[in-house]
Computed example of a mutant assay.
Amino acid sequence: MIAEARLRKITHDPQGFNERERKLIAGSKSQIDRWKSAVDFAFRRQYSIPMHLELQDSSVDSVVISRYGIIVEMLDGDLKPIIEGRNKIAHGQWVWELNNLETQFKGRAADPMNYLAISRRGEIIDNLAEIVHVLIVSEPAFQREFDRLYGKISSTRCVIDGNDYPQFEAKIRNSGQQGIRSTMKGKKR
Rank of each mutant, 00 (worst) to 15 (best):
S119H: 15
P166A: 01
I153C: 05
L101I: 05
V137M: 01
I125E: 01
I136K: 12
L135Y: 01
P140I: 02
V134G: 00
F168I: 04
F168A: 12
N174M: 14
G151I: 04
D111T: 14
E169Y: 10
I118R: 12
V137W: 03
K106Y: 07
V137C: 02
I125V: 11
L149Q: 06
L135K: 04
L116M: 14
S155N: 12
E130V: 04
Q143D: 09
D126I: 04
Q104G: 06
R144E: 10
I153W: 01
N174Q: 15
R148F: 13
I118G: 09
A109Y: 00
S154E: 15
L98Y: 02
L98C: 00
M113R: 13
Y115T: 12
F105Y: 08
T156V: 12
N163Y: 08
E102A: 11
Q167G: 08
A109N: 00
D126E: 13
P112G: 00
S119P: 10
N114K: 09
A141P: 02
L128F: 14
N127A: 10
F168H: 14
C158T: 15
V134T: 13
P166N: 04
T156F: 03
Y150P: 05
V134P: 01
L98D: 02
Y165T: 10
E97N: 12
F142Y: 06
G162C: 04
R157E: 05
K171R: 13
P166D: 03
G107K: 05
T103S: 09
D111G: 14
L128A: 07
A129I: 06
L128W: 09
F146R: 07
R148D: 14
A141D: 11
N114S: 08
R148Y: 12
C158W: 10
L149H: 06
P166T: 04
S138T: 05
K152W: 05
E169K: 13
Q167V: 11
D126G: 08
L128P: 09
E139F: 07
